Computed example of a mutant assay.
Amino acid sequence: MGDADAASIAKAQGGFMAEHLKAYLASGGTQGHILDLSGSGGHALTTNCLIKYVGRKSGKEYVTPLIYGNVGGEIVVVASKGGADTHPEWYLNIRESETIGVQIATQAFEATWREPEYEERHHVWSYMTHLYPPYLGYQSSTTRHIPVVMLRIGHSIPVFTA
């Protein structure tokens, strides 16, 4: 899938991501943590977190909602960008930082991040494609190796606000 195709997917979502983020932030995490993504090939009870990071060029803070899983006590997110040929901006930005913020429902934490390799990555990727089967189609539509990011939770921080 080319970036133009990914842009058309984003446009077709009609602001869903922005509305999801707005509800998550406005509710302090009581809304938006679990979504029904069965209409897009996912599951009815899909968990979503928020990540907070700093833009590598702008220096601004950004918050992005992402599907997440939990493997061995670490939060796992996937930098799929719907199968686009380029990495998502959030992924490029967190690569420039040692820590980011992560909010799960009504709790937020500072987290360090890493990318699993080899057999561990295979295991984690398999788990994440079970949580959200469209990831398989995203990977097959691009030559880009879709990154898997694992977050190790640290100390508590205030929940994110708009």
Rank of each mutant, 00 (worst) to 15 (best):
T64F: 04
S97V: 15
V78G: 05
K52C: 04
E89G: 12
G39D: 00
Y91L: 13
L35I: 07
E110Y: 09
S38G: 08
T99C: 15
V78I: 14
Y68S: 02
H43Q: 13
H33E: 12
E96R: 15
A79I: 05
A108F: 06
G69R: 06
S38D: 01
E110H: 11
V71R: 13
I51A: 00
E89W: 13
I104Q: 02
Y91C: 10
I67E: 08
E96L: 14
S80P: 11
R114Q: 06
K57M: 12
L92W: 05
W113N: 06
Y91D: 09
V78T: 12
K57D: 14
V71P: 00
L66P: 05
E110M: 15
H87L: 12
Q103L: 03
R95T: 13
S58G: 11
G101F: 01
V54R: 13
T106R: 04
T46V: 10
C49K: 02
L45C: 14
R114E: 10
T112A: 10
A105N: 04
G59T: 04
A111V: 08
T47L: 09
R114Y: 11
V77G: 01
T64K: 00
Q103A: 03
Y53P: 06
I67M: 11
E98K: 15
Y91G: 02
N93V: 11
T112C: 11
I94A: 07
N70G: 02
S80R: 03
K60L: 15
V77C: 07
T106K: 06
V54S: 12
D85Y: 14
I100A: 01
A84M: 05
A105Q: 04
T86Q: 14
Y68D: 05
S38N: 01
N93S: 09
S38P: 10
V78L: 08
V77M: 01
S58C: 11
I75T: 12
E74K: 08
V102W: 01
Y91H: 08
C49N: 07
A84K: 00
H43I: 10
I75C: 07
I100G: 08
G82I: 07
G42I: 03
E96M: 15
A111L: 08
W113E: 07
H33S: 04
V54L: 13
S97R: 15
I34T: 09
G83P: 09
K52N: 09
E74I: 10
V78E: 02
G69T: 06
T64S: 06
G41K: 05
I100K: 03
